[in-house]
Amino acid sequence: MTPTIDTASDTASQDPWHDIRPYQDDEVAATLARLSEDKELLGALTRYRLPRMSRLMPRLSRSLASLVIKRETRGVTTVRDFQQRIAAYMQRMLRTSTDDFRVDGLDALDKDTAYLFIGNHRDISLDPAFVNYALYLSGRDTVRIAIGDNLLKKPYVTDLMRLNKSFIVPRSARGKRAMLAAYQNLSSYIRHSIQGDNHSIWMAQREGRAKDGIDVTDPAIIKMMTMAHRAENRKAPLGEAITELRLVPVSISYEYDPCDVQKARELKALKEDGGYEKSEFEDISSIVAGITGHKGRVHLRFGTPLDASFDTPDAVADEIDRQVLSGYHLFPSHYLALEALGESPELLDLGEVTEADRARFSARLAEVPDDLRSWWLRQYANPVLHCARSD
């Protein structure tokens, strides 16, 4: 009798993070070949780039899109190759949709050391993309990016994200035991990336974007990150796990958020209707809007690594909040929104607000539907209020 070979358990024993980790170099060719024939991806690309042709000649338009993907990825055999192609698009995006991009604090971090960058979260794809671009410009390796499985509803999206060094955060596991096991595995992977692979990671300070402009760290994220260390040594102080992970808070500030109207709509629905139902492709639309929409000026600040002095997840979260808010750059758009709301005049700092700033702000506000304006203004005004309260 021929024994049955359990390939799934064999794979798990050799590669315990196979289902959540980013793709490796030996998986790139097959993934790109799969993407170049994926009908959903090809359809999405043609609807965006060739809307008329995609309606009238869908098969031909998909064939053209497939040829473009094959041409653009010719010679791409490693994850690094893939990211270098993305870097070219990133530079083009910066030129067309960003007026200025400044980075502070990165020079103080060792080039050859892996860090767990934990930052405020405003945009699904852009927050880690700007972190990656800053690292790329300084000659450092890019990060592995934590992304919730709620965003990976389409196989082609999962492939694209994992090609771009994303790893999967489980949010849809059913049952307490399944969720605990999933988070233990995730924590183990994060620890392995920092300590074993010496490869940096980016994570958001809480689940979901801060749609109201208020940045607060969820202590549950800290608990998850340190699970692997605590499982190995339950008596070890929390600070030991924190220093092992080399947590570095990161602040990102956008002068304008390309998804601000959509966020205002969601905030209004949550307040007035008690809930908000996303459309099937809304997350994908948010990614596209974030990449292509005008952002004005963008400021990125890397903080300092946390030490072993923190003994509770809440204390760690408070320090992350302190560094994120102290590093957050307030633009004219933030002060002009507070002025428009007529609140906290003592916090207004209009010394560097130019007439051009006012004109841009007024033009942007004029495009916002009347019923969403207060929600739109609140997104930009809240960082001024929140930063002031943290002082």
Rank of each mutant, 00 (worst) to 15 (best):
D141H: 10
D141L: 12
G119Y: 03
I124N: 07
N120Q: 12
L126C: 13
G119E: 07
S125A: 15
G119V: 04
A134K: 02
N132I: 03
D123R: 02
N120T: 12
Y115M: 02
F117N: 03
F130L: 10
I124H: 05
Y133S: 10
S125H: 14
R144P: 10
R144T: 05
I124Q: 05
Y133P: 01
N132Q: 07
S125V: 15
I145G: 01
L116H: 02
Y136W: 13
G119A: 10
H121N: 11
L126F: 15
V143Q: 00
S138A: 15
D141R: 14
F130N: 00
A129G: 11
L137P: 02
G139M: 08
A129Q: 00
A129M: 09
G119D: 08
P128F: 04
G139S: 12
L126G: 02
R122H: 14
D141K: 11
D123K: 04
V131L: 13
A134Y: 02
I118W: 01
L116S: 06
G139W: 09
H121K: 10
L126R: 03
H121V: 14
P128Y: 07
R140S: 10
D141W: 02
L116Y: 01
H121E: 11
F117S: 01
P128K: 06
H121R: 11
I124W: 00
F117W: 09
N132S: 06
G139Q: 08
D127W: 03
I145H: 03
T142P: 07
G119W: 06
Y136K: 05
F130S: 02
I124P: 04
T142M: 12
D127Q: 03
Y133T: 04
V143C: 03
L137M: 13
N132P: 04
G119K: 06
P128L: 03
L126A: 07
L135Y: 07
T142I: 14
L137R: 14
G119P: 04
A129S: 14
I145D: 00
G139L: 11
S125M: 15
S125T: 15
Y115C: 08
F130E: 05
Y115K: 02
I145W: 05
A129R: 00
L135S: 10
A134T: 06
D123H: 12
N120W: 03
I118L: 15
R140P: 13
G119N: 10
Y136L: 13
D123S: 15
S125D: 09
G139Y: 09
L135T: 04
A134W: 06
F117R: 07
S125C: 15
L126D: 07
R122E: 09
D127A: 11
